[in-house]
Design a protein around this nucleic acid. Structure first.
Length: 288
DNA sequence: TTAATTTGACCGGG
DNA sequence: CCCGGTCAAATTAA
């Protein structure tokens, strides 16, 4: 399976302690990038929680202005540094969860089966992601198996939708850890990466669930869930706040862009680097 | 007590 | 027969 290396975390700020040195422009760029990422995440938390149209409009504009300021500063810095390689800004949360493959096999090309085989996954209805947080994808899953796979270092886990029994939702997914290639210039180990493969579209209606992850509607208009949980990443226990917008209105779309779903995970300990993710865009996925 | 996970058995396709 | 997906009893967590 192909792994896309554009999947990056913000590098930790490693300050060089040698006393006399010139301004570390790369560090400045990195810190700006980190700031932008944090602002974007903060925006994703704050805007859906605002009550009125007017206040969200105002706050949205303020966020835009803040991001615009740092973008201009970054652009100016990069202009001054002709040899500075482009810094990948995390201006787009989508970059943190990479869709790495999409298997589409024309269903007309395959032989007809009147009874669908219980033991063969429908490759035609799958999508695959790389992510450090495979369990935070906006849906609830029930593990039903684990298997050591030939030649793989880590076992593969099998999940089905929690609401399969009650609602007949057929969605399943598999999660498998892999060792990512470490290409970070700082030699930092971005371990704990997973490949998550999703099979089948969710047909469940997952309002009102409350097991493990708390979900709520903040009001009638904004169908927004705020989830709190923890994740262990590189041996650091981190608090995760996950915001999921199910039916974004125009205001949401304004700051979400075309991706109508989002899921930004922020680290509540600001001394540590944030983890971001994105709500998988199940509804807009072309399953056929 | 209920719900979720673990784990070896089981199953069927290749 | 091997492989990987699923089942379900036992175990653990809530």
């Amino acid at each position: 399976m192909k792994h896309n290396n554009t999947n990056r975390y913000l590098p930790q700020s490693s300050v060089c302690d040698d006393i006399p040195r010139a301004c570390n422009h790369q560090l400045v760029l990195k810190e700006f990038a980190k700031e932008q990422s944090l602002v974007i995440q903060l925006r994703a938390i704050v805007l859906p929680a605002l009550k009125t149209e007017q206040s969200s409009e105002l706050v949205s504009q303020m966020f835009e202005s803040i991001l615009d300021c740092s973008s201009k500063a970054i652009a100016e810095l990069q202009h001054c540094l002709s040899d500075a390689p482009a810094v990948h800004m995390l201006v787009d949360d989508k970059k943190t969860v990479q869709r790495i493959s999409k298997d589409i096999i024309d269903s007309n090309a395959r032989p007809q089966h009147n009874h669908q085989s219980k033991r063969s996954k429908r490759v035609s209805e799958s999508m695959s992601f790389e992510t450090p947080v495979p369990h935070y994808d906006g849906h609830q899953w029930r593990k039903y198996g684990q298997k050591q796979i030939n030649g793989a270092k880590y076992p593969r886990s099998y999940y089905r939708c929690t609401y399969r029994k009650e609602q007949g939702c057929k969605a399943t997914k598999t999660v498998q850890q892999y060792d990512p290639v470490v290409t970070d210039a700082g030699g930092r180990d971005h371990s704990m990466m997973y490949t998550a493969i999703y099979y089948g579209r969710h047909t469940c209606n997952f309002n009102g669930n409350d097991n493990g992850i708390s979900a709520r509607k903040d009001n009638g208009e904004r169908n927004t869930h705020i989830n709190h949980d923890h994740v262990n990443y590189n041996n650091n226990q981190r608090s995760i706040v996950s915001v999921t917008c199910l039916q974004p209105d125009d205001d949401h779309k304004k700051f979400l862009g075309d991706n109508v779903h989002f899921d930004t995970k922020i680290n509540m300990d600001w001394q540590l680097d944030p983890i971001e993710s994105v709500q998988l865009d199940f509804d807009n996925w072309n399953w056929e």
